[in-house]
């Protein structure tokens, strides 16, 4: 149970894009072909290593349906990372990204790391959003981007681990005041985690723009 850091993630995006499947593939290495509508939120956890440090990921998979929005918003603020998912075979899920981002900006902490994922890349023949479009959107909004498949597991590990890597780097760079306010950023320092340089609030807020703009 000992870890150097604990990161809280959320997974957001339209219903049916494959959020629950991505989590299941990451935690259980399984694929679930039937769509079990998520009600509210579901929890999953896994240990990874970055830079030889054990890092615990706590992941909340949220319901994409509009009616759960007020519940799922409660999870934004305390998360260190977010996986924003769309479905490359359904254009409208890509079109909704802007409104998801807006929601995140409004409710999440400014330092939240966001990974944009174009899911279901195994269904190349039904593709409705090109890889370039995805890349372009990510670049414009300062997000990390990846296409993945919860079905074939392609890039699933990478998506979660790269996000953690980015957060870890932010800690190393002293973006967060992990010794004091870490928990409000969705980060916990465990045994073996190095408290970042004591920069205080000013330091972190000055860097805030750099992450998400």
């Amino acid at each position: 149970m000992s870890y150097a850091y604990l990161f809280k993630y959320i997974i957001i995006g339209d219903t049916g894009v494959g959020k629950s499947c991505l989590l299941l593939q990451f935690t259980d290495k399984r694929f679930q072909p039937v769509h079990d509508l998520t009600i509210g939120v579901e929890f999953g956890a896994r240990m990874i290593t970055i830079d030889n440090k054990p890092i615990k990921l706590q992941i909340w998979d949220t319901a994409g349906q509009e009616s759960f929005r007020s519940i799922t918003r409660s999870y934004y603020r305390g998360a260190a990372g977010a996986l924003l998912v769309y479905d490359i075979t359904r254009r409208e899920t890509f079109n909704h990204l802007a409104s998801w981002l807006e929601d995140a900006r409004q409710h999440a902490n400014a330092n939240m790391t966001i990974m944009l994922i174009g899911n279901k890349c195994d269904l190349a023949h039904r593709r409705a959003v090109s890889t370039e479009e995805g890349e372009q959107f990510a670049k414009e909004h300062g997000l990390i981007f990846m296409e993945a498949s919860a079905k074939t597991a392609q890039n699933v590990e990478e998506a979660f681990i790269n996000t953690a890597g980015t957060i870890y780097k932010k800690i190393q760079d002293g973006v967060f005041d992990v010794s004091n306010e870490a928990s409000s950023y969705g980060i916990k320092v465990g045994y073996g985690g190095i408290p970042g340089p004591s920069g205080g609030r000013d330091g972190s807020s000055s860097q805030a723009g750099g992450c998400c703009s």
């Binding site: 809280k8 509210g40 939120v41 929890f43 909340w60 519940i71 409660s74 999870y75 305390g78 928990s183």
Partner: peptide, 12 residues
Amino acid sequence: AEEIQKILVFEG
């Protein structure tokens, strides 16, 4: 209240 329970836990 299951959802409230989960949010509480999310909040540590």
